[in-house]
Design a protein around this nucleic acid. Structure first.
Length: 486
RNA sequence: GACCCCGUCGUCUAGCCUGGCCCAGGACGCGACCCUUUCAAGGUCGAGACCGCGGGUUCAAAUCCCGCCGGGGUCACCA
């Protein structure tokens, strides 16, 4: 390919950042990186009433969080449509001067009436071209319309869908510039893509029907067309549109749920794209393998379960130090404290060790933080099924022995502790599990936790013994010892 | 309604272009077993798709052709 690949992601800042948008951004990014091209971020904020600066900031934040770095775009100027009105105006004038566009004085009311009439006759409405040859003078209020070709067909050679054909007679003279002088979306897109020298337009399937209109605009302007690639939509489990009703839909929500960015990127990539039987891809591998030819045509249902699996895979693969860092903000909330409180709770090294003990049993950082609670405070209560099963008549005696042995235990690392327990179990004629579960309940309040010896080591000798004593007191309260021990 | 797109296990998908290696492979989820101080993780095995339906073409079709049905998208002086 002689020319450098230039692609863009062009969100409109009118709402929160949807995962569908994230995937479109991702495919563009991966395509650009794969071809050593340029990834451009452009803000489509022509809709001034709905566009807000907060949404723009949000878009930049999310893209950075996802690791989808752009080569051109904000904060540099010139990448927001509101900054580019002069360019659109000039192109509109040129089309008018070339006779490729014309002034139209039909009012929205007139058009609505025509639309209703067409609907009553069960016909599809198309602008009848009333002003096409009317030579409406500039002095009159007017919109600018593009002269669409009459008869024939417009063919879209889509990199994903193949050849898509539209009859020109189903297309009408659409509005380039409104009566108030503002350019319409379809016009801006064409002008922007052309002036930014976009080579491949990779966008959602919902834009396919805009494509023939835009192609006519490229032709009228005398510009070369980019290649188009329309990617399939992301669907809800009922195969409809994804909405809040189905749970999380925005990138921020997944971030708040404790999904790692590379996990979300990985999952989104596999929604509609594949590389053989491979499932796990780092962003770098994505860039390496991504091709439009391997993007599917059918819509893909968003499956939260699989996302969680991918998330677990990335948590398992993450370095403990990194986990400690990203886990910190989740700690406070998990302990019922303000989110800022988490940072003061532990030093990074200890938190890294904690994260390491939790990584293969946490699908999200939220789950990890919840499971980490036992490292920061004694159990608030003992799980009822657990005590029912393990706090038998012999429990007080065993706790007493455990406390005594822990007191005389010097080395408090997992291996030494395991040795202590194994020796003790043999001595008492018990299975390791009989002792281990008692300690686990004392330490965590539950029957499920990371390996107990690891938990005890992380807690330290003093805290471990304190919790064993608390548990002993609790068993005795619940079930007074039966006669003399031994 | 018109136009456009899509249709392989519940879900994501490989295979389709260049028919036979596919009575369809992988992954998630599900079930069983193994491992094991618990839960996970890991390992092994299993259930699960008449390749939307119906016709063709062909010695041979998930793969090519036609029709149908189903789903989705778009039909603004919104983006």
């Amino acid at each position: 390919m002689a020319d450098t690949v230039r692609v863009r992601f062009a969100p409109s800042p009118t709402g929160s950042f949807h995962v569908g948008g994230a995937r479109t951004a991702l495919f563009n990014w991966a395509f650009a990186r794969h071809h050593k091209g340029v990834f451009i971020l452009r803000i489509e904020d022509t809709d001034r009433s709905r566009s807000t600066d907060e949404h723009i900031v949000q878009i930049l934040d999310v893209l950075r969080w996802l690791g989808l770095d752009w080569d051109e775009g904000p904060p540099a100027s010139g990448y927001r449509q509101t900054e580019r009105f002069e360019i659109y105006r000039a192109h509109g004038e040129r089309l008018l001067a070339d006779g490729r566009a014309y002034r139209c004085r039909c009012t929205p009311e007139t058009l609505d009436a025509l639309r209703d009439a067409a609907k009553a006759r069960k016909e599809q409405f198309r602008y009848p071209g009333t002003c096409r040859e009317a030579g409406v003078p500039a002095s009159e209020p007017h919109a600018l319309r593009l002269k669409m070709p009459v008869g024939g067909q417009t063919v879209v050679e889509d990199a994903i869908l193949g050849t898509v054909t539209f009859d020109n007679d189903t297309l009408d003279d659409w509005i380039l510039v409104r009566t108030d002088g503002t350019p319409t979306y379809n016009f801006c897109v064409v002008v922007d893509d052309v002036t930014m020298k976009i080579t491949h337009v990779i966008r959602g399937n919902d834009h396919l029907n805009n494509t023939p209109k835009q192609i006519a605009c490229y032709a009228a302007l005398g510009y070369e067309m980019p290649l188009f690639a329309h990617i399939p939509m992301i669907l809800a489990p009922d195969r409809g549109k994804m909405s809040k009703r189905h749970g999380a839909t925005t990138v921020e929500e997944f971030r708040d749920q404790g999904i790692l960015p590379e996990a979300l990127v990985n999952y989104l990539a596999r929604l509609g794209w594949s590389h053989g039987d491979d499932e796990i891809f780092s962003p770098k591998e994505l860039a390496e393998h991504f091709t439009l030819a391997q993007v599917g045509k059918a819509g893909a249902v968003f499956d939260r379960e699989k996302l969680l699996w991918v998330s677990l895979e990335w948590i398992k693969a993450a370095a403990p130090e990194r986990l400690a860092e990203v886990l910190t903000p989740f700690l406070g909330p998990a302990l019922g404290l303000p989110s800022a409180a988490g940072a003061a709770l532990v030093d990074p090294a200890r938190l890294a060790a904690i994260a390491a003990s939790l990584k293969e049993r946490s699908r999200t950082l939220v789950e990890m933080a919840e499971q980490a609670a036992c490292y920061f405070r004694p159990p608030a209560a003992y799980d009822a099924p657990a005590t029912a099963k393990f706090w038998g008549p012999e429990a007080p005696h065993r706790y007493a022995v455990l406390i005594k042995r822990h007191l005389s235990q010097e080395a408090f690392d997992p291996e030494s502790l395991e040795g202590l327990y194994r020796g003790l179990a043999a001595e008492m004629g018990l299975k390791l599990v009989d002792l281990a579960q008692l300690t686990r309940i004392a330490l965590t309040g539950k029957t499920a936790s990371p390996p107990v010896f690891q938990v005890a080591a992380l807690l330290g000798k003093a805290e471990t013994i304190a919790r064993l004593k608390t548990a002993l007191a609790a068993v005795e309260r619940a079930k007074p010892p039966l006669g003399p021990k031994q």
